[in-house]
């Protein structure tokens, strides 16, 4: 492809792929979501050039959020270099020509699937989540009419039934991701399938936006919103993770992925946030298998 045809292709797209009317519509949904933290705002989700389940909700929210001056980062389960993350990053490089980065601190808009970066976010940053199922009550109540009524009337007993079932069956609340939270004492919200380890980080300085493309819902957390993980008095919320330091960078405070390294079942634990891990190693930290990694 010559430079000329590449430019022609790029200019054929409106900025960030979506047309201005659509972006305006999505921004209205985002603003409403920010005004009513935790409330699921319906929006007219568009067909995107990728299948449902690949982040169509997050991509539309990012498209409506990005400005030409933004610096964009995409992570998939904490990693910048997986197929999904690379594809979405390239999508916006091509359709919006925005600057991209893998460094959390440099990014102004971060689209994420299933993680919150380890490095605390700032007030000038926006975190966009890809959400598969936005309705936390869906597991037990299949009717959308009924769940909307339950939200409207704050009838959240059912949410604790789910946690009760966990304890009854496993002796502890076994929900390890998509752990339900209550926002500002009002709406019960699904924080998307982030590990419960990340739940305490939901109270942060950055704006958090959640987009579900197939389910056509957008919801949001303004900066410093109170977010409480649901629990029982005698089974309090516990944001636990693997009892292990990172084998590459030695971090003891980060969320870890377990990686099987050979057919004999050898394994290592590594930071799921690749940028965080790299930055630590660049700064001279080393884990147990750091030399080999």
């Amino acid at each position: 492809m010559t430079t000329q045809t590449a430019e022609a292709t790029q200019s054929a797209y409106n900025f960030a792929y979506l047309d201005e009317q659509t972006k305006r519509m999505i921004r209205r949904a985002i603003l409403k979501g920010l005004a009513v933290p935790g409330y699921q705002v319906p929006f007219a989700s568009r067909e995107m050039p990728m299948p449902y389940g690949w982040g169509t909700g997050g991509v539309q929210v990012s498209a409506a959020t990005l400005t030409p001056e933004d610096c964009f980062k995409v992570i998939d389960q904490g990693a910048d270099d997986t197929t999904n993350a690379v594809s979405i990053r390239k999508f916006f490089e091509r359709t919006a020509q925005v600057e991209t980065t893998t460094h959390t601190a440099e990014a102004t808009v971060i689209q994420t699937r299933h993680r919150i970066p380890e490095e605390p976010l700032r007030e000038d940053q926006v975190l966009v989540y890809q959400v598969p199922i936005p309705e936390p009550l869906r597991f037990l109540e299949p009717s959308e009419v009924e769940t909307r009524k339950m939200h409207a009337l704050e009838e959240y007993g059912l949410m604790h039934v789910k946690l009760y079932e966990d304890i009854a069956r496993h002796g502890a609340i076994s929900t390890a991701y998509a752990y339900p939270v209550k926002v500002e004492g009002r709406y019960v919200m699904d924080p998307s399938p982030i590990p419960k380890f990340d739940n305490p980080k939901l109270e942060m300085a950055a704006i958090q936006l959640f987009g579900a493309g197939r389910e056509q819902r957008i919801y949001a957390l303004p900066p410093y919103t109170q977010v409480v993980s649901l629990d029982f008095e005698d089974h309090p919320f516990d944001p636990s993770k693997a009892e292990h330091p990172c084998d590459l960078c030695g971090a003891e405070d980060s969320y870890l992925d377990e990686v099987i390294t050979d057919d004999a079942g050898s394994r290592m634990f590594v930071c799921s946030d690749t940028d965080y891990c790299l930055a630590r190693r660049d700064a001279g930290h080393e884990g147990a298998q750091g030399a080999r990694g």
């Binding site: 037990l140 007993g157 059912l158 039934v161 079932e165 029982f232 089974h235």
Partner: peptide, 27 residues
């Protein structure tokens, strides 16, 4: 009844719906 919820969860739902938050008591 909620057919996909245990007997205990079925009985406990109304308690939790009115604010019961102690697993041991509910059980």
């Amino acid at each position: 009844l909620r057919m996909n919820v245990s007997a205990g969860g079925n009985v406990g739902e109304r308690l939790m719906a009115v604010g019961a938050r102690n697993y041991g008591d509910i059980r």
